[in-house]
């Protein structure tokens, strides 16, 4: 405890000044004493004691009954003193927890870090922002030797720290799959069994897994109950929802996932996201997915990275800069 003694002579002079003049500046100084005392862990009892001593110094003839009343006051304040002490202890504990969480968040960033692929003929943009310190959204790029890229976008239901821990498990499970095992449907089926066996019943994961083949300009994908992404057709300037059927990971051990494939044409875009994007709300109003697409379109002349960052900034502003949910948006644009 770094408690320092309250300065009795200073207190006495101030008290004297106030009793004689009722001067505002003495009151202001009293407020400063109170703030400093809290900072230095000076107990309530000590302040009252200092007050009693100062009074006795100023009025050596202080009536005995007033002295008794001060002892009485001291007794009455004891519980408040204890409560204050408890509050200070809690505040310290809270600071410790906060710093531990930020260490965990940094560690999560390191564990889950991923490198955006640099693919000739395509432009890729990624933004992923957690609502709280730890991100329950997850995205990952796996660079295969044959030039194809595995792309994962996932959201753990059940927020905060447990969700974040769960994501690390998923990442390592995926990395342990043999490299020839890269079909989206197979990967989701294997992961589903991992999650079903290892995760709490109220927790589950939605995941969109795509295998992107830049050389053939195709993308094959499966979805485990994940928020559908969108495909932008440059030819007629329209968006199409990327529907894929499949149940979330971790609910039934027998789940099977259908695999779909499509070709990416010049100027087209593949848009992958989490529900933090489509569940944005402005006050009580939900933001419809048409609106999300309008915003994407309005920035579509930019590079993919500038595009996703501008879309994020747009919705951050709409929600008064307070995200309700983690926000992840990936856009793959094929060069014209």
């Amino acid at each position: 405890m770094d408690a320092i003694k309250l300065d009795l002579s200073h207190y006495r002079e101030l008290l004297k000044q106030y009793i004689n003049t009722q001067d505002e500046s003495a009151l202001y100084e009293a407020e400063q004493i109170s703030k400093r005392s809290i900072q230095h862990n000076i107990s309530l009892e000590e302040i009252i004691n200092t007050h009693i001593n100062a009074l006795e110094d100023i009025y050596p003839e202080l009536p005995e009954n007033i002295q008794h009343s001060m002892s009485f006051l001291l007794e009455v304040m004891i519980s408040y003193g204890l409560a204050l002490q408890e509050f200070q202890d809690l505040r310290e504990t809270q600071l410790e927890i906060k710093s531990e969480i930020s260490v965990a968040a940094r560690m999560q960033n390191t564990l889950l870090s991923t490198v955006k692929p640099d693919v000739e003929g395509f432009d890729i943009g990624v933004v992923s922002v957690p609502a709280n310190q730890m991100n329950g959204d997850y995205h990952h790029f796996i660079h295969h030797e044959d030039g194809t890229v595995g792309i994962t976008v996932a959201d753990v239901i059940g927020k905060g720290i447990p969700a974040a821990l769960c994501m690390s498990m998923i990442k390592y499970a995926m990395e342990s799959f043999p490299s020839e095992h890269k079909n989206p449907s197979e990967i989701l089926e294997s992961l589903n069994r991992v999650v079903e066996r290892n995760v709490d019943p109220s927790m589950f994961i939605t995941m969109f897994y795509a295998l992107f083949n830049p050389a053939a300009s195709t993308i094959s994908y499966s979805s485990a109950g994940h928020e559908p992404g969108f495909y932008y057709h440059a030819a007629d300037d329209t968006f199409e929802e990327i529907r894929a059927k499949g149940v979330v990971l971790g609910v039934t051990d027998m789940a099977q996932y259908r695999q779909y494939e499509r070709e990416i044409h010049a100027g087209d875009m593949v848009i992958l996201l989490t529900d933090g994007v489509t569940e944005c709300r402005q006050g009580d109003r939900f933001i419809e997915s048409e609106e999300v697409l309008e915003v994407i379109k309005s920035f579509s002349h930019l590079s993919a990275q500038e595009l996703v960052e501008n879309v994020y900034k747009h919705f951050e502003k709409l929600q008064d800069f307070h995200l309700r949910d983690d926000f992840t948006l990936i856009i793959i644009k094929k060069d014209v």
Partner: peptide, 30 residues
């Protein structure tokens, strides 16, 4: 939101352990 889905998934798992039944009715579009 998705937390709500988590509650119903827990409910579903509990019905399997207790031989009970769970049915959701009259849901709004969203």
């Amino acid at each position: 939101d998705s937390t709500g889905l988590g509650v119903f998934v827990s409910g579903l798992k509990s019905t399997k352990e207790n031989n009970s039944e769970l049915k959701l009715v009259q849901l709004q579009d969203r």
